[in-house]
C-alpha cells in the first residue's frame, strides 16, 4: 500500500494525462457526435447513409484497431500524425463520437414526430427545426446516457498506453516494473480511475432523477 503514497506525484502525472485525454476526446466526440446524429435524421438520403456508415463502422470496431489504423496503417497511405497525445485524442474522439451520435439520435427519436412536423409547417428549415425545436427537447433525455458514454471514454483512454502515450496505465506499468510487480500499484491505478468515474456516475443518476421529475 505504501507504494501508492510513495509514488503519489507520479500517479498524479499520469492522472492528469488521463484527465486531459478524457476532456479533449470527450469534447471532440460531443461535437462530432451531435453533427453525425443530425445527419442521421437529415432529409438527404446520402447524408443519412454517410452518418449511418460512420456510426456503424466506428461503433463496431475495437478501439485498439482504430489506434492501430491511425498510428501504424495511416502512415503507409501518407498520413503521418504526430505520435502520442493528440493522435490518441483523435482516435478516442472519433470512436466515442459514434456512441455519442447514437445517444443523441435516440434522444431525437424520443421527441414526438408532431414537434418536427409542426416546426416544418410554420416554415422552419431543417436546421432550424433541429436547433430550435428538437435538440433542446432531446438534450434532456440524452444527458444521462451521454455521461455513461463519457465514463466508458475515461476507461477507454487506457488503450492509449500502448500507443506512445504515458497516462495512468502507462505510469502504472512503469511503477509495477520498478517495484517488482507489487500488486498495490494497480490498486492505485484503479483508485485514480474511480476518482473520475464515480462522481460522473453519481452526476448521471442525479440528472436522471431531475429529468424524470420534470416530465
Amino acid at each position: 500500500m505504501g507504494v501508492i503514497f510513495d509514488n503519489a506525484s507520479t500517479y498524479v502525472d499520469g492522472f492528469v494525462v488521463t484527465l486531459r485525454l478524457t476532456a479533449y476526446a470527450g469534447a471532440l466526440a460531443l461535437v462530432l457526435g451531435v453533427i453525425v446524429a443530425g445527419l442521421r435524421v437529415a432529409p438527404l438520403r446520402s447524408l443519412r447513409l454517410f452518418a449511418a456508415a460512420w456510426v456503424e463502422v466506428l461503433r463496431n470496431t475495437p478501439l485498439t484497431l482504430v489506434f492501430f489504423f491511425m498510428v501504424l496503417v495511416a502512415p503507409q497511405f501518407g498520413i503521418l500524425l504526430p505520435l502520442g497525445f493528440w493522435t490518441a485524442v483523435l482516435c478516442l474522439g472519433l470512436y466515442t463520437s459514434a456512441f455519442v451520435a447514437e445517444a443523441v439520435r435516440s434522444g431525437i427519436n424520443g421527441v414526438g414526430v408532431g414537434q418536427a412536423e409542426a416546426a416544418r409547417s410554420i416554415g422552419l428549415t431543417f436546421g432550424q427545426t433541429l436547433r430550435e425545436v428538437v435538440l433542446p427537447q432531446a438534450v434532456r433525455s440524452t444527458i444521462p446516457p451521454l455521461i455513461n458514454v463519457l465514463i466508458a471514454l475515461t476507461k477507454n483512454t487506457s488503450v492509449a498506453a500502448g500507443f506512445a502515450t504515458v497516462e495512468l496505465i502507462g505510469v502504472g506499468r512503469r511503477l509495477s516494473t520498478a517495484n517488482a510487480g507489487d500488486p498495490w500499484v494497480l490498486v492505485g491505478v484503479a483508485a485514480f480511475y474511480l476518482v473520475i468515474t464515480i462522481p460522473a456516475g453519481l452526476l448521471a443518476s442525479a440528472l436522471e432523477r431531475r429529468v424524470a421529475f420534470a416530465r
Binding site: 498506453a161 500502448g162 502507462g170 502504472g172 506499468r173 512503469r174 516494473t177 520498478a178
Partner: peptide, 8 residues
C-alpha cells in the same frame, strides 16, 4: 515497450 525492463 510500455512497462518493460528496458523502458525502466
Amino acid at each position: 515497450v510500455s512497462g518493460s525492463t528496458p523502458e525502466g
